[in-house]
Design a binder for these strands. Structure first.
Ligand code: NAD
Ligand code: NAD
Lengths: 212, 212
DNA sequence: ACTGAATTGTGAAAAATATCACGACTTATT
DNA sequence: AATAAGTCGTGATATTTTTCACAATTCAGT
């Protein structure tokens, strides 16, 4: 939209910076250097300065960054002033864990609606979130733009198609299935089994190398 | 160790390839082209061919790849012939979900041991995995080299230090804390709140751009 | 055997990301 | 006021990753 020039790698680090700035602010810290931040978030200090620089000159030479100012800046950049509502599809092991988690703590994101096919689960409240029947997706999804997908892999594509039809913009997909969507819709995959296996692979083949 | 030349980006995709090859094999498919694979895993076909090429010439020009051969090759490359034992620390919402999940299905990885501080949980079996008291980490960790960390963020560093002392090689860290470890130890972070927030950020600022 | 369609493996180019290194500026101290 | 220590912002460079594009090869059909 507005800042199409910001590299994706940078954009992915912004929420991380935001969280640590929040911590610092709560600890009453007034200023912070890229070096300090670097040690906290394990990102090279030059990378941090470069990342920040895409948004202009946010710091002061010889001084560092003013925590409060930087935090305020990122709050608006990350749209932390408004709550983003998210739907969760598939209230199983993983889905239930997410429903119990409070994403509001650091991020203004709230899972407001959940769906499942299991009649045992439909009608219940989990972590304060109502669970609706997946067949009522049409009516209950409202204008929610982001969905978390934690259904069995075989169901992933069918449900995705429904979400797309209903006008979803982004999907956080935890199933191992690589879902197909029209290209204006954004899908991020978090594939836990792959992550675990990749870690094991790195251990066996890259020992003593620098960590990621 | 042996193949230090393989790019990290490639290494991270290997488990994904492996899983899809497994699917194809189970479906009785005998051959596959990089183009087909590309559509299934959503990775550019040239990238797939390049990835495979680091391991030598695995395919045949004009034909594609033999599924069974490729699968066998990756099985040994990814050490799928031997089971990797993993410990899980923190049997809460997220930890419990993982204990119920069968990582053996596609990957020869098994969570064999879990630890928690809560006396209610200690002594129970969850998903067939015994939960030990965190104070018995010393005795019960044995020679497990990989740990999944799903404890509260404030506990993350303390427990990490214990794991390091006990000789762990890799940690899959789900806490928002950025833990410090000696540099021969590998840590992969999966930061769910960051992932969700990053997705939201992309939706607001990169609409209509190509998905990741 | 020949032809045409399919597909690999890879050199070369492009794009994306990370890091180095330093001039310019700020603050604190004497 | 001068000096020293600290730190940013960024041009330049290095590294990593992706993509293009095509010669070489294989296969299937005639
Ligand atoms: N649990 C883990 O640790 C883990 C790890 C890696 C990957 N995953 C993946 O995450 C996904 C969820 O895993 P899980 O362990 O929570 O599975 P689960 O079986 O516990 O939960 C799946 C839920 O989806 C519901 N469901 C089934 N069909 C549905 C439909 N058509 N519409 C709506 N809901 C439907 C089920 O009723 C169930 O509640 C799976 O794809 C799994 O492969 C899970
Ligand atoms: N649940 C989610 O959806 C979610 C999302 C994002 C991040 N996280 C992060 O994942 C981690 C786990 O989340 P959760 O929701 O499962 O939390 P949880 O509170 O449900 O579970 C934490 C578990 O760790 C145990 N524990 C506490 N101190 C311990 C210690 N010293 N040694 C061993 N065990 C100890 C607790 O008894 C509890 O069982 C947290 O750091 C959280 O921030 C969770």
């Amino acid at each position: 939209m507005d800042q199409n020039k910001i590299p994706q790698a940078t954009a992915k680090r912004l929420p991380l910076y935001y969280r640590f700035l929040n911590n610092l602010n709560q600890q009453g810290k007034k200023r912070v250097s890229s070096k300090e931040l670097s040690e906290a978030v394990k990102v090279d200090s030059a990378t941090i300065r470069r990342d920040f620089s895409y948004f202009g000159a946010l710091g002061k030479k010889g001084y560092g960054y003013n925590v409060e100012y930087l935090l305020g800046f990122f709050r608006s950049t990350l749209d932390q002033h408004e709550v983003t509502e998210v739907a969760l599809i598939g209230v199983g092991n993983l889905g239930t864990a997410f429903l119990h988690y409070n994403f509001m703590k650091n991020n203004n994101i709230r899972i407001t609606t959940a769906f499942d096919a299991d009649t045992e689960k439909v009608g219940t409240d989990i972590g304060g979130v109502p669970v609706y029947d997946i067949h009522h997706l049409e009516e209950k999804l409202d204008d929610i733009k982001v969905a978390i997908l934690t259904v069995p892999a075989v169901e992933a594509q069918v449900i995705t198609d429904k979400l797309v039809e209903k006008g979803i913009s982004g999907i956080l997909n935890f199933t191992p299935a690589r879902i197909s969507v029209p290209k204006h819709i954004r899908v991020h995959h978090i594939d836990l089994a792959v992550e675990l296996q990749a870690l094991v692979y790195f251990l066996k083949h890259y020992s003593l190398d620098k960590p990621e």
